[in-house]
Design a binder for these strands. Structure first.
Lengths: 227, 227
DNA sequence: TCAAGATAGATTGTAGACAATATGCGGGTG
DNA sequence: CACCCGCATATTGTCTACAATCTATCTTGA
């Protein structure tokens, strides 16, 4: 539902790539797991050729780590890695918000409002906050990124970086402990985009992501002191 | 010399990957060229296995475009693509400059000064401005990116984006028509980094790259009106 | 002239074999 | 007892050959 297989898949190598990626992101294959080629080949019902091509592509997306003559392992993200990623997100999504304020069409802005009101309802019904905190939050960010109409930016964020963010969320069942504030920030970002204020949109988006990063850093401190 | 093969290369697939990448970036293989698998395999003296893995990795770096059952072509960059890339550079290198101001070591700052004075001398000797306008300029940017000490950021910029920038420069023999101003901007960026002013460093870097982008956009307009 | 089918060419997928290398175990030595 | 060296094993890396599939072109017929 969220955003997994965007384009039509035709070759076996691409199928294996998509399946293996999902299995890694969703946690079916746990971080650190050794991935033997023979084992994977039989698991997905293909030969080693297409499998190795899929592995190469997943390696360049940092979803698995490879070492020559040793093999591949499912990437295991540390919190430091995630903090690094959030710095990059801050820069790229800030730019995306700025460009979205300039280039978004009316229907795209309307779509933002739809997502927003959807989240507001789910906030009232407090039981299913998981949606907002997982893929729902990402839907909002996806739309703004797409709204930048900058294909390079879109590919970098959605094609490469976001899989790692999603993997982390599934790995640690990560939830934001400030859903109301986050939703309020989303609202103000949409207002800035709607009024075409690129400067403000970028600033608000950067703050929004920066706070999420600080939240991660804080939780890490608590974890280490409690342990 | 500049920055081509950073890590030790052990497997054939990695060798082919590095060679093919260089051949594309440096223009040995011209944009749009069809790359038959059999032809490439004999060209580099390997079989199709390692070759196909190299092709997959180059595809995810956007150095070549592939179509299933048709084949691969050397990517041909349009000016619009480059403008998109410069928007991303503005965001990412702005962040890199901010982080560099916070995290660069003394010796790294010294290295920046060295590059700077090197460029100043080459400016006086006006004959060989090509160095500054090509790899020399990139050296400066590379150092600041490395100075961010954010490996995710470094990988994205140097590992993925910069090959495209370099390819474009070789493709069009692109030169900046404002070398003095660019050098002055470099100087002020180093000052901001040295004084630990992350806000200023980011702002100056963003302006610097933004002006380079405007320069590209202007040249494109002239080209189209003259043609 | 246009459209549908056949053919040629290429790429993609598969299988099997061998070479190259890392890992882990066991024995020997200080 | 600890450490180092060498060997066996398993896995990855590579190559060859062939089958399957798709694309594009050419031919043929209406």
């Amino acid at each position: 539902m969220a955003a997994s297989n965007r384009q039509e898949i035709r070759t076996l190598a691409e199928q294996v790539f998509a399946q293996l990626q999902d299995d890694i992101v969703l946690g079916v294959l746990k971080p650190g797991t050794r991935l033997g080629e023979a084992e994977l080949a039989s698991r997905y019902g293909v030969s080693r050729g297409p499998l190795r091509e899929a592995i190469r592509r997943l390696e360049s997306r940092k979803l698995l780590q490879r070492e020559p003559h040793v093999g591949a392992r499912v990437a295991s993200l540390t919190t430091d890695d995630l903090v690094e990623i959030y710095r990059v997100r801050e820069a790229l999504e800030g730019m995306a918000a700025r460009l979205a304020a300039q280039h978004m069409t009316e229907s795209e802005v309307q779509g933002l409002h739809d997502v927003l009101s959807q989240h507001e309802q789910q906030q009232d019904i407090k039981e299913d906050t998981a949606y907002f905190q997982r893929e729902g939050d990402l839907d909002f960010h996806y739309r703004i990124i797409q709204g930048s109409h900058n294909q390079t930016l879109i590919d970098l964020l959605i094609g490469e970086l976001y899989h790692l963010v999603r993997m982390y969320r599934y790995q640690f069942s990560a939830v934001t402990n400030r859903p109301q504030k986050a939703l309020a920030e989303h609202r103000r970002i949409v207002e800035a985009i709607e009024s075409g204020d690129g400067d403000l949109a970028e600033m608000l988006m950067r703050r929004h992501i920066s706070r999420a990063r600080e939240n991660i850093e804080l939780q890490t401190q608590n974890d280490s002191t409690n342990t």
